[in-house]
């Protein structure tokens, strides 16, 4: 139950990109096409899951002093594996994403959840936390990739969206366009979170009032 709740929390109220401002760099720089956003999101999710599992299982073996260094080596090794797999499976998209695949290893989301969460928690909550953070990142990347590609290039996953060869707003593919879209999404999620918390507060107040009336 707790695991399930922490999973949804990571996607909406504690979204790593929009609320915690971690991993903004790849979220803006890569998402000019939906494919590369999807690829980088999947890569980050895989690295997050595969590197937090050994860390959480070996936390009694790794001494406190060597913790940070060994975590970095684990993350670097898994990122290399992911990069090799991706460059053999999806060579063109990997070429497009470029240096951001190696930069998964220094992504704030990965470092924070491996160093902070996986070190101090048992295996199952760690997996749920990693899955939630990775999915939150993946959803934002995919959403931004879809919006920016369809508005800026007139295509979606490489296929044309509109009947004719037209583009609505080429600015969306540029870097400032990505920042603008990210800002709008962050404002939207902040608004949604505020509405949810207000509703919960109202419900609690109503509950207290009802109790007072009934008593």
């Amino acid at each position: 139950m707790i695991d399930h709740r922490s999973f949804t929390k990571k996607i909406l109220t504690e979204n790593p990109v929009l609320v915690m401002a971690a991993g903004i760099c790849p979220a803006v720089a890569v998402t000019d096409s939906a494919y590369s956003g999807l690829l980088l999101g999947c890569g980050t999710l895989l690295v997050l899951l595969l590197s937090s599992l050994p860390v959480t299982l070996m936390k009694s073996i790794i001494p406190e002093k060597a913790a940070c260094a060994s975590h970095i080596i684990i993350i670097a090794a898994i990122t290399s594996v992911i990069q090799m797999l991706f460059s053999s499976w999806f060579p063109y998209v990997t070429e497009e994403v470029g240096i951001f695949i190696p930069l998964i290893a220094v992504n704030c989301i990965v470092i924070e959840s491996v160093n902070g969460f996986a070190r101090n928690n048992p295996a199952l909550p760690t997996l749920f936390n990693g899955l939630g953070a990775g999915m939150g990142f993946l959803i934002i990347l995919l959403l931004m990739g879809i919006i920016r590609e369809s508005i800026g290039k007139g295509t979606l996953f490489g296929d044309p969206v509109f009947a004719e060869d037209m583009t609505l707003l080429p600015f969306a593919v540029l870097l400032p366009g990505g920042f603008f879209l990210l800002s709008l999404l962050a404002a939207l999620i902040k608004h949604i979170n505020r509405m949810i918390s207000q509703k919960q507060k109202n419900a609690k107040n109503n509950h207290i009032e009802e109790e007072e009336i009934s008593s």
Partner: peptide
């Protein structure tokens, strides 16, 4: 600043404008 834009959204918007100027 509108309530929803306070904090991080406003910072990202400012970065967008700065980046646009810079390009």
């Amino acid at each position: 600043i509108p309530e929803a834009f306070r904090g991080i959204p406003a910072y990202i918007m400012a970065l967008a404008i700065l980046s646009m100027v810079f390009i």
